[in-house]
Design a protein around this nucleic acid. Sequence first.
DNA 1: CAATGTGAAAGACTTCACAGCC
DNA 2: GGCTGTGAAGTCTTTCACATTG
Lengths: 244, 244
Amino acid sequence: MSPVEGATPVAAAGATAVAKGIPEATVARLPGYLRALNHLSDNGVATVSSGDLADEAGVNPAQLRKDLSHLGSYGTRGVGYSVAYLRFQIGREIGSAVDWPVIIIGVGNLGTALAQNADFGSRGFRVVALVDTNSALVGTEIDGLTIEHQDDLRRTLRDSGARIAVITTPPDSAQAVCDELVACGITSILNFAATVLSAPHEVTVRKVDLGQELQILAYHEQRKLDGLWPADDDVVAVVAGEAP
Amino acid sequence: MSPVEGATPVAAAGATAVAKGIPEATVARLPGYLRALNHLSDNGVATVSSGDLADEAGVNPAQLRKDLSHLGSYGTRGVGYSVAYLRFQIGREIGSAVDWPVIIIGVGNLGTALAQNADFGSRGFRVVALVDTNSALVGTEIDGLTIEHQDDLRRTLRDSGARIAVITTPPDSAQAVCDELVACGITSILNFAATVLSAPHEVTVRKVDLGQELQILAYHEQRKLDGLWPADDDVVAVVAGEAP
DNA sequence: CAATGTGAAAGACTTCACAGCC
DNA sequence: GGCTGTGAAGTCTTTCACATTG
């Protein structure tokens, strides 16, 4: 998948409520369902069947139903799902109710693009801090946020209260940044640097490598050019990893 | 997941040479191995064992060996793999020998960042065209490339000879762009727009949704905060997609 | 009747463990 | 002795098909 390694189905010693244990592959698809539901909701659709929702999300209807069955029984037989209610339930499960504070380390082209990405806001994320080593950048603003120096990472983290870190530094500094983030108590990292990060196992690290995505496409494109085109079907992909 | 839907193991009615049939999950990891090998090569390492290479690539040694076994027998028992030779073989398989021409549609923050991304060049990709609908942008240059108008997409595609398209438009225009790309004969698309594209099955579409990646992180982060932290281990992730 | 929820079957992927080779 | 290459076992994921329910 976008795919997580060590994909233990998040078993859990239940505390107050239910101990769900949602399979990782399902978790990776939930955001897609949420987006599909939002889209339907914007178009004034109140109720949707697994078939229609599956189309909108680009998955198989049986898969959608199985995925949702891990969250609970939120549909009505013979009718379908209430768009508003299902959206609420998935949102709650996935933590979209919360407004997650995000820090971006490395304000290059990509970091800047992410900082300005309006889409994040609509999905429950707020960029609360920007950090770089380039002193020419430190002190300047992007969208009203002042760029801090990486040497002050610890303080910046504390002051901003960020819970999720995005690494958009060059590959050689990524591991050092990761180590410091972990030392400061961050447990969720999205890594855009083209390097494998190692972190303690209680830290969740996801990697997005844009060059890698192109290379996977190139593999398939080459096969097509070579005229090895399939005995059976193929194609249409999801996530980055994905899940998937 | 990175993950590809309809993950048929790319069976193929072999023509001249061998009809490989490399599993999609393996294909998704090959670029990572290639990067690891380049890194080792830069450090002057000539020979590497599956254990060390697996560490560098962030996978299990057995998995690495099984993956490589799909390409052929390129190692030496009791010794390991020649870095240079293995790099050559994977590069050939994955199409990194070629210099792939890429077109970017949608020159917003993200599109601009990708256009300037130096990493692409080192991985065998060259951005040969930029396209947008905003007439204020059309005619301006980024890194020596003139931005063309989207109305001229067909001509721009022909003139540039692009084989891979990257969509960084807003979600509402993405499907229309996709349709036109397909009509012009493009069969490999990387989609950054937050929408599911539908395309004929001979077209390979990969999706990278940055908001979605954050949402998956948020899910795990929430669980940690809720104190449901695992009966068994978890964590350390790969790709984007990728899924998975 | 229509559409969900779910056991059970099929399939894909990962990991183990060891035979075979250098 | 050390390390690759690989059948076989184990695990996770997807899909099928149908009993169940509003």
